[in-house]
Simulated assay, not measured.
Amino acid sequence: LADACVIFICRGDPIGKGKPMYRFQMKDQDNKVLEDGQMTLIFNADYPGDWEYKKLMDDLKSADSKDMHYDVLKERMKTIKEKEGEIMEAGHVLEDYLKKQEDKMKSEFVVNLLKESIPEETIVRLADVTPEFVKLVQAQL
């Protein structure tokens, strides 16, 4: 197997021994480490003391790039924040489009049910619409 390391960055100390980092490897019944290149690291991002990864943990918790220590993370955060607005706007456009499509499909369904003389309360239940929606569609016929 290729060497692999699974890293968990946790808010707080999930192991509860007051350490900033825990390292786990597979061992056999005689406590001999299985040299398979696999390792699990668990970081306590909220460790209060000073330690070698303190600045990195602070950067990962930071919501503002100007508070970060590492330039590569600062730049990435700036990019994400700039793109976030664009993504949110695109999400709203898509949401609006999907809502219009859903309303159109519901309208067509309601029209078909009205043509079959289905009672309004049944249409409301089957089409998952309000009585006002049914009346609006009916008025457009």
Rank of each mutant, 00 (worst) to 15 (best):
Lys19Arg: 14
Met88Tyr: 05
Phe43Gln: 02
Asp28Ile: 12
Cys10Thr: 05
Met26Gln: 13
Pro131Glu: 01
Lys81Ala: 10
Val129Ile: 13
Lys74Tyr: 00
Ala127Tyr: 11
Ala139Ile: 09
Arg76Ala: 15
Gln101Tyr: 00
Gly85Ile: 10
Asp28Trp: 01
Lys19Leu: 14
Glu95Gly: 04
Met88Ile: 13
Asp46Glu: 04
Asp46Gln: 01
Glu52Ala: 12
Val111Phe: 01
Ile15Thr: 06
Glu86Val: 14
Val137Thr: 09
Leu141Cys: 02
Val72Phe: 10
Ala127Arg: 13
Leu56Lys: 06
Ile9Lys: 03
Met39Lys: 04
Leu34Asp: 15
Glu116Val: 00
Val72Leu: 11
Pro20Gln: 08
Lys19Trp: 02
Arg23Thr: 15
Glu95Ile: 00
Lys61Cys: 09
Ile9Leu: 05
Asn112Ile: 01
Val72Gln: 06
Val129Lys: 06
Gln25Ile: 03
Thr130Asp: 03
Ile87Gln: 12
Ile15Glu: 14
Val134Asn: 04
Val93Cys: 02
His92Thr: 15
Leu60Met: 15
Phe24Ile: 04
Asp3Thr: 08
Lys61Leu: 05
Glu121Ile: 14
Ala45Cys: 03
Phe8Ile: 06
Gln25Thr: 05
Pro48Gln: 05
Glu132Ala: 11
Met39Thr: 07
Val129Asn: 05
Gln38Trp: 01
Tyr70Pro: 14
Glu120Ser: 11
Ile42Arg: 07
Val124Met: 13
Lys135Ser: 15
Gly85Glu: 09
Met26Ala: 13
Lys81Ser: 15
Lys104Met: 10
Asp128Trp: 02
Lys55Pro: 09
Gln138Glu: 09
Lys104Cys: 10
Glu116Met: 14
His69Pro: 06
Glu108Leu: 12
Glu89Arg: 08
Met77Glu: 02
Asp71Lys: 15
Asp50His: 04
Lys61Phe: 00
Lys115Leu: 08
Ile87Ala: 07
Tyr97Met: 02
Ile7Met: 12
Glu35Phe: 05
Val93Ile: 08
Pro48Ser: 03
Val137Arg: 04
Ile15Phe: 12
Lys74Ser: 05
Glu108Ile: 08
Asp46Tyr: 00
Leu1Met: 11
Asp30Lys: 13
Glu121Val: 10
Met26Asp: 04
Asp3Trp: 00
Gly91Lys: 04
Gln38Glu: 05
Glu75Phe: 03
Asn31Ala: 15
Lys78Asp: 10
Pro14Gly: 15
Pro119Glu: 14
Lys61Ser: 10
Val110His: 04
Gly12Arg: 12
Cys5Lys: 14
Ile9Arg: 03
Asp3Cys: 02
Lys32Glu: 08
Ala45Thr: 00
Phe109Ser: 12
His69Met: 07
Met21Gln: 08
Lys17Thr: 12
Leu94Glu: 12
Tyr53Ile: 02
Lys115Ile: 00
Lys81Arg: 11
Lys66Phe: 08
Tyr22Phe: 05
Val110Asp: 07
Phe8Thr: 00
Lys81Thr: 12
Met88Lys: 09
Asn112Phe: 02
Phe109Lys: 11
Asp128Asn: 07
Tyr47Cys: 01
Trp51Phe: 13
Leu113His: 00
Gln38Lys: 06
Met88Pro: 01
Pro48Val: 02
Asp3Met: 13
Asp103Ile: 03
Pro131Ser: 06
Ala45Met: 05
Glu86Asn: 14
